[in-house]
Design a protein around this nucleic acid. Structure first.
Length: 479
RNA sequence: GGCCCCUUGGUCAAGCGGUCAAGACAUCGCCCUUUCACGGCGGUAACACGAGUUCGAGUCUCGUAGGGGUCACCA
């Protein structure tokens, strides 16, 4: 059986789109599932879109995601170079061969002439004007230094059919296809040509890419056929949408891998979530390690319809990953976010990590959740209301002074002591624990949700600060 | 607009002619609890529409509607 070889071929735009990340992931999973190779190829034939540092972004994103390629620009391999701009001579050679085979031709048409071909609907299709040129004329004009491109020669009639491994049979009439440019006037190839030559030369067995190529694939097949090359297998993937009608895009700032990492999502969670968009394992599991994904990956679990990116579910998944971290691991990934908070350097971060772990879905929530430790001021006393505990501001007025007294008299300020004092207070007054603890927690934090209950907060704040805050809260209630 | 493709709850999705149409997120309710959170249990909620084919259709066919993709010297 042939060796499975897949490739991820991004163009260096400066960021890693989540859709691209998923494509890379599926390429990786499919090749690894079948013991094959996964190749990274940089498609930088558009010099106008060159972005400084963009290639490094691709390397680092893939690396952080745990998607490892076997061959690539920075890894080497026997089919290099893996950067298209370094393969210019190769494309030209094959383009000439294709011209000889009748699959392509030189074109000297000016931009103006091309524009004159536009119809009333704003569409235009090249009219094969230069196909008629004799070989002698072509050579003379090239020799005279006239700029030219090389176009693909597509039949005027007939139908092209191929099997896509997820979409099934796709058939397109040649009449609906245009004689696209294969080699631009700057001598570099377009995607239309480079991908065919490279995929063949790099022995790619399965081409995995987005559905935007679903209907242009016949053009590529035509070239494979003309060259006498074996066509690869095709696996087209549905796109990822932002909502019903818009796709996830850079434009809305919601498609970039790095942005998600900076917002406090773990790369593993992002990869795991993205894997689930458009694919579901037979076993009906959702949280998976890379190794599990490789094991479970299968093409018949890949769906044909576009899926909408749901950041609520991503948050949940990220939270799941966070919860299973040890306190130390959590501290490590959370440190950049602790630094953004007002408490950095003033509290025991490992202790806070333990409390925060089950209360945070994305790391960027951290500053907001803990800033109250340093910032305490007026708050809405409606927070004292809790239906189930039957507490409210009125009850707080009577309970808070008792709490203050207990805490003030505490012989030491450790967990057990505070616990016994507060619970003891509830027993003593024949109240529910919550009727003491809820007001205490609110009075200490001024917040409805806090990292930890009243006892944990008291411990973190320390005796003096606790008393100060309770006094403040009593005053607030009596206003 | 032409061509290609898609259509199960709010979202991700199982299903591949016969199921009470899975599961997850979200949502709602209950429980647990040392309060918030975590956790446990349960509820609401879907086969776009219309014709066929068939004893029987979410599953097959055709049409309609809706959505997406594509029509560049971008990939």
């Amino acid at each position: 059986m042939e060796k499975i070889r897949t490739r991820f071929a991004p163009s260096p735009t400066g960021f890693m789109h989540l859709g691209g990340l998923r494509t890379a992931l599926y390429c990786y999973l499919y090749s690894k599932k079948h013991g094959g190779d996964f190749i990274l190829r940089i498609e930088d034939t558009d010099q106008e879109r060159f972005v400084e540092g963009a290639v490094e972004v691709i390397y680092s994103s893939l690396n952080e995601s745990g998607i490892c390629y076997d061959e690539g620009p920075d890894k080497g391999g026997e089919f290099g170079p893996y950067v298209q701009s370094e393969r210019k001579a190769i494309y030209l050679e094959y383009a000439k061969k294709l011209v000889e085979l009748g699959g392509a031709y030189y074109c000297f048409c000016t931009k103006e002439r091309l524009e004159s071909l536009t119809d009333e609907n704003g569409n235009r299709k090249y009219d094969k004007h230069c196909l008629k040129l004799s070989k002698e004329e072509v050579e003379a004009r090239i020799a005279a230094g006239e700029p030219y491109v090389i176009r693909q020669n597509i039949p005027l009639e007939g139908t092209s059919v191929y099997e896509d491994m997820v979409f099934g049979t796709i058939s397109v009439d040649y009449a609906d296809l245009e004689d696209n440019i294969l080699i631009k006037s700057d001598g570099l190839p377009t995607y239309n040509f480079a991908n065919v030559v490279d995929d063949h030369l790099m022995k790619i067995s399965h081409v995995i890419r987005g559905t935007e190529y679903l209907s242009s694939t016949p053009k590529y097949n035509l070239m494979y056929d003309t060259f006498g090359w074996e066509r690869p297998h095709y696996i087209h993937l549905p796109i990822i949408m932002k909502d019903q009608t818009r796709k996830l895009s850079k434009r809305y700032g919601d498609a970039n891998f790095d942005d998600f990492v900076n917002k406090g999502y773990l790369p593993e969670a992002i990869v795991n979530y993205v894997a689930l968009l458009g694919w579901s394992p037979k076993e009906n599991v959702e949280k998976m390690t890379m190794a599990q994904m490789i094991e479970l990956f299968s093409l018949d679990g890949v769906s044909k319809s576009p899926s909408i990116f749901d950041d609520v579910k991503l948050r949940w998944l990220n939270g799941e990953y966070l919860k299973e971290l040890s306190d130390e691991e959590f501290l490590k990934v959370a440190t950049p976010f602790f630094k953004q908070s007002k408490v950095y350097g003033k509290y025991d971060l490992l202790q806070l990590s333990a409390l925060l772990k089950t209360r945070v879905e994305i790391l960027s929530e951290i500053p907001d959740k803990i800033n109250f430790l340093e910032e305490f001021g007026e708050y809405d006393t409606a927070l004292f209301f809790h239906k189930k505990m039957k507490t409210d501001a009125e009850l707080a007025k009577t309970v808070l002074p008792w709490i203050r007294e207990k805490l003030a008299s505490a012989p030491s300020f450790d967990h057990d002591t505070i616990h016994d004092l507060l619970i003891g207070l509830a027993t003593e007054k024949e109240m529910k624990n919550g009727q003491i603890l809820w007001p205490a927690r609110v009075a200490l934090s001024g917040k409805d949700v806090t990292p930890g209950g009243a006892i944990e907060l008291a411990l973190i704040l320390g005796k003096e600060e606790c008393l100060r805050r309770i006094d403040f809260s009593i005053n607030l209630l009596n206003k």
